Computed example of a mutant assay.
Amino acid sequence: MIRLVALCLVVAVLSACSSSPSRRFNVDRQSIEKPIVIENITIAPFKAPPFFDDNCRAAGKIAPPDRATFESYIQSALAEEIRRSGLANERGAKVALFGEVKMLAFTSTGAFSDPWWMVRVKVTSSNGKEFDIGEKYDFKTSSFGAYKACQEVADAYVPAVKRMVAKMVGAPDFLPLLVQ
């Protein structure tokens, strides 16, 4: 009987360690570890943050959509936002953007606040100009259960990045990165 209880306990603990990928959001597979070229703008692969703990409670690791890395997802989101905004111009001066994720962190629950994502990115242009931006994205979880809450954390990464990238591309300090 004791062995059966011990076996059930081991199975329960091990089954809680699953990955929670977020839902799909237009990640271009070519962006994983490769530059993305949009007319006159090349977006180099982003550097990973110096430290990021992707473990979420007892539910295991979270992951961005489509098996991308967290930094390649940001690279793809930036490329998509530049495409949508019409900032790329085939006849414009060629520039390359180099990104570095300076900070990536989340919490799945808070005693005194909602769960959140924090994303901070530095983008450097081949023209020597730099732009830093950060975003704290608050969201709600509907569950105290680890698996459901961690799935909601993974899902919240998409709008957190989307909002940060939209603010970045819409900022007046971003445009000088695109000229020689």
Rank of each mutant, 00 (worst) to 15 (best):
M1K: 10
R3C: 06
V5S: 11
V11Y: 12
A12W: 13
A12Y: 12
V13A: 15
A16Y: 07
C17H: 07
C17D: 01
S19V: 13
P21Y: 07
S22W: 06
S22A: 15
R23T: 14
R24Y: 09
N26Q: 10
V27T: 07
R29K: 13
Q30P: 02
S31P: 00
E33C: 00
K34R: 14
V37L: 12
I38N: 05
I41A: 06
I43F: 04
K47W: 02
P49C: 04
P49D: 03
F51G: 01
A58I: 15
G60K: 11
A63F: 03
P64K: 07
A68K: 00
T69S: 15
Y73H: 12
I74D: 01
S76L: 01
R83P: 00
S85Q: 12
S85N: 07
G86L: 01
G86E: 01
G86R: 02
A88M: 03
E90I: 13
G92R: 12
G92A: 15
A96Q: 15
A96H: 03
F98R: 12
G99A: 05
E100K: 14
K102Q: 14
K102V: 12
L104I: 05
A105R: 15
F106D: 01
T109F: 12
G110L: 09
W116Q: 10
M118V: 06
M118K: 12
V119R: 07
V121D: 02
V123Q: 05
N127E: 08
G128L: 08
K129E: 14
E130H: 11
D132T: 10
D132N: 10
I133N: 02
I133H: 03
Y137Q: 04
D138K: 08
F139I: 09
S142D: 14
S143H: 06
S143R: 05
S143P: 04
G145A: 13
A146H: 13
D155T: 10
P159H: 11
K162W: 03
R163E: 14
A166Q: 15
K167Y: 00
K167V: 00
A171Q: 09
P172F: 01
P172K: 07
F174K: 05
F174Y: 05
